[in-house]
Simulated assay, not measured.
Amino acid sequence: MSGSTARPALLLAHGAGGSVAANYGPMMEQLRARYRVIGIDYPGAGSTPRATRRLELDELADRLTAAADAEGVGRFAVSGFSLGGAVAIRLAARHPERVTALALTAPFARADTGVRLTARVWRSLIAAGDTDTLGRFLLARCLSPAALEAMDPQELETAVKETGAGVPVGTPEHVELVERLDVTADLARITAPTLVVSPVDDPLIPPRLHRAVATGIRGARLVEIAGGHLPFAEHPDRWAALLTDGLTDGLAPGSASGVSDRLADGGTDGEE
């Protein structure tokens, strides 16, 4: 997908069990107003055919780079969400001359034991075909306590059914990659200005893993925002502001680097 050729380019790398539309759709209008947006769905997501073998991180990074090539784009910023953060990191490490900036949301360099255990339960529930239990599991592991408590029983039950039934067919391969990827060594190779967005109530990827990514990338700026693992579901306008004003203004020459900013409910950093 793409927008005006006059705008700077932004590549989108989505999360495991997601898609460009699912993870970035709620902010797409704001992103297209600022950027020429280019994104691809991983195998088994959106209209992309499911993989017949296990996924490799280099392959996903190459697919995203190829999408930019197909659009005639030489240099670009990259936004990576969750698993997409690792994709973006690998892409930036392999093509430092092409990446102008990175925005990594809820990223991890390597899954810890807790994340790997969660991933295996996730895959087991998909294999079992119990979509309601899968939906309950994903909501509990992805939304913040505040978001869950804000739903009335009917809203929660509807969300359970929609979440469980809406899992892309390629999710098992995405999640299996989550279990074994490791971009720790790539962090020191990143030269692009980097913004790390850390949802402080993320129950899926612990915020300490977000912080470890920010610590490993020289000069990275860490911004904490309220909410769970899915900022596009809980705080889409706030996340969009960080991917537009926060990414361009916050990473401009002379701006703070290596700084942690906390965005609470009443915060103003990156917001109107």
Rank of each mutant, 00 (worst) to 15 (best):
I89Y: 01
L11D: 05
T194P: 09
A241Y: 09
S47V: 13
V213D: 02
S19H: 04
G227F: 08
L243A: 00
T244Y: 00
V20C: 00
R53Q: 14
D69W: 05
A146W: 02
G270P: 08
G258Y: 03
H95L: 14
A6N: 15
A212N: 01
K161R: 15
E272K: 08
R136G: 15
A165S: 14
R54M: 12
D186N: 05
I217K: 11
G85H: 02
A140W: 01
C142T: 13
A150Q: 09
L60V: 14
V78R: 07
D41R: 12
V160N: 04
E29L: 02
P199V: 08
A241T: 09
G254A: 14
T171Y: 00
G164E: 02
L31W: 00
V99C: 05
A61I: 11
A264N: 03
F232E: 06
P107E: 02
L251W: 02
T100Q: 07
T105C: 06
P26Q: 07
T118S: 15
A150S: 13
G44M: 14
V87L: 04
R94P: 09
E29N: 03
F76Y: 15
R262N: 10
G267Q: 03
I126L: 15
M151H: 01
A13P: 06
Y35V: 03
L117M: 14
A226V: 14
L263D: 12
I40G: 06
L64R: 13
P203S: 11
A240R: 01
A233Q: 12
I38N: 07
A220I: 10
P96M: 02
F108R: 07
Y42W: 14
G129M: 13
V99T: 06
A188N: 06
Q154I: 11
D202Y: 09
